[in-house]
Simulated assay, not measured.
Amino acid sequence: MTTRGGGLATRRTLAAQLRLLGVRSGATLLVHAALGRLGFVCGGPQAVVLALRDVLGPDGTIVVPTHTPDNSDPADWRNPPVPADWWPLIRAEMPGFDPAITPSRYMGALAETVRGWPGALRSDHPHVSFAALGPAAERVLAGHRRADMLGEGSPLARLYELDADVLLLGVDHGANTSLHLAEYRRPAPPRQRQGAAVRTADGGREWVWWDDVRLDASDFDALGADLAATGAVRAAPVGGGTGRLMRQRAAVDFAVHWMARNRRTEDDA
């Protein structure tokens, strides 16, 4: 880990900073994190989870994205793309998603630490699962529908119902998954076909297809800057980096109106 910016952070100092930022005891908190941007953390991701639990207390719940973007249609892969003649074999051989053992990808060490924490639960979505630790975990994760995967049948909508908070640790709004819920709340959002490998009831696997909203995070940084300008986002040092805290409802509601003003619809094209 880098030691630049902020010196040494510990479970105790992180908890103190998170309280100053405004993390609420008893809250349900969706966390997106890039721990490498927090400087040197004594104990790494384990210490960060412990600090979050210290602040949230026994009535609080931590939620993290444990997405598996590599379990998707290889025809859509761009970083890097793969040859078209590989696509059928990938669809035929990709292991079926298993919430107990399939690791998340590109979600960071904190998400993986929460996923493996004793007592943590994980939703059963093959592409955009979430994990949670705390008394609200089952309510947040249950019934995560395959179609409309970040919409009304998703943990994001359950977090909205619970008036949850969102914490960005060392990341900006480009990683703010809750803003995708606003895309589902737009009238007639553009859609596309999605695919993934899933487990079957007999312990095997199969490739499945479904229709879903075409997600687009390319303008989330601009959206987030405008949201922050309203005073809805609190920012303060956490370790050697920056923490940003907001109420999820406020962010989603703002994003719905922002997208209506700033995004073109297919009818406008």
Results as ranks from 00 to 15, higher is better:
Gly39Lys: 05
Trp87Leu: 08
Thr66Leu: 13
Arg234Pro: 04
Asp216Tyr: 00
Ile101Trp: 12
Val114Ile: 10
Arg247Glu: 10
Trp87Phe: 01
Gly241Ser: 10
Ala109Met: 15
Trp209Gly: 01
Leu150Ser: 14
Thr200Ser: 13
Ile62Leu: 11
Gly153Tyr: 01
Ala164Gly: 07
Leu20Cys: 09
Ala255Glu: 14
His127Glu: 15
Glu93His: 11
Gln248Leu: 07
Asp73Arg: 05
Val256Met: 04
Asp163Tyr: 00
Phe254Gln: 04
Asp165Leu: 15
Asp202Gly: 00
Ala175Arg: 15
Gly240Pro: 04
Pro45Arg: 07
Gly96Cys: 05
Gly143Lys: 12
Leu227Cys: 05
Ser72Cys: 04
Asp59Ala: 15
Glu206Ile: 09
Pro237Gly: 05
Ala201Arg: 09
Arg53Pro: 00
Gly143Cys: 09
Ala157Met: 15
Arg193Met: 10
Pro189Glu: 13
Arg247His: 11
Ala27Ile: 03
Ser104Val: 14
Pro65Lys: 05
Thr242Val: 13
Val31Lys: 04
Pro80Trp: 11
Pro187Glu: 15
Pro187Ala: 04
Thr28Ile: 00
Ala217Pro: 01
Ala269Ile: 14
Asp202Asn: 12
Ala229Asp: 15
Leu150Tyr: 00
Ala255His: 05
Val64Phe: 08
Asp172Ser: 15
His127Gly: 14
Asn262Ile: 03
Ala84Thr: 08
Ala260Thr: 10
Leu30Met: 14
Glu152Gln: 12
Phe220Leu: 07
Asp202Glu: 11
Leu110Asn: 00
Ala255Thr: 13
Asn176Gln: 13
Arg145Glu: 07
Leu38Met: 03
Glu206Asn: 08
Arg146Cys: 14
Leu133Asp: 02
Gly39Thr: 01
Met1Phe: 09
Leu169Pro: 02
Gly96Thr: 08
Leu227Asn: 05
Ser218Asn: 06
Leu89Pro: 00
Gln194Asp: 06
Arg185Phe: 09
Ala164Val: 07
Ala269Thr: 13
Pro187Phe: 00
Gln194Tyr: 12
Pro45His: 03
Ala92Asp: 07
Asp221Leu: 09
Thr68Met: 01
Val238Gly: 06
Val55Gln: 00
Ala164Thr: 03
Thr113Ile: 00
Pro135Ile: 09
Arg263Phe: 02
Thr68Val: 12
Arg12Asp: 14
Gly119Pro: 01
Ala27Thr: 01
